[in-house]
């Protein structure tokens, strides 16, 4: 039987939560990668099958999930760079908290216009074109 939980070393601030988010986004991206290799493999079956699976990527709900995917990959990438900075840059550990906020800021800055470009077509199709 697994032992009873030992005492915790988690400190519950920026360092811990960025680590938790790194794990969660990593697992989500990994499962999507499996699905994505399988759907792309349909190009080897027939153009029609591939186009049909791509049409589901263009539906509103899946389109919204793609925004989440891009945000997750962006966070995981930037936080990965933060981890490397902590490992290899002598001042990295001292600035890990500031780097966490920098990661969040860049994710938001990129995702606001990013979401606009990714959802533009879906929104126009649902509510009519503005032009």
């Amino acid at each position: 039987m697994p032992a009873a939980p030992a005492g915790t070393l988690y400190r519950g601030r920026e360092g811990m939560w960025s680590w938790v988010a790194h794990r969660v986004t990593g697992v989500l991206i990994f499962f999507f990668l499996f699905a994505h290799v399988l759907d792309t493999a349909l190009v080897r079956v027939s153009p029609d099958y591939y186009n049909r699976i791509m049409d589901t990527y263009k539906t509103p709900v899946v389109n919204l999930m793609e925004v989440g995917l891009v945000g997750a990959v962006l966070y995981h990438s930037l936080n990965g760079l933060r981890v490397m900075a902590i490992d290899f840059w002598e001042k990295g550990p001292r600035y890990q908290k500031q780097m966490t906020y920098a990661v969040i800021a860049v994710v938001l800055l990129v995702m606001i216009p990013g979401t606009y470009f990714m959802m533009q077509h879906t929104v126009e199709e649902m509510f009519g074109s503005t032009t």
Binding site: N51, M54, Y57, E66, G114, F117, M118, H121
Partner: peptide, 14 residues
Amino acid sequence: MNILDGGVNRINFS
């Protein structure tokens, strides 16, 4: 694939 030039909407077999 997702952001530039129409993003996912232009992706198909061709």
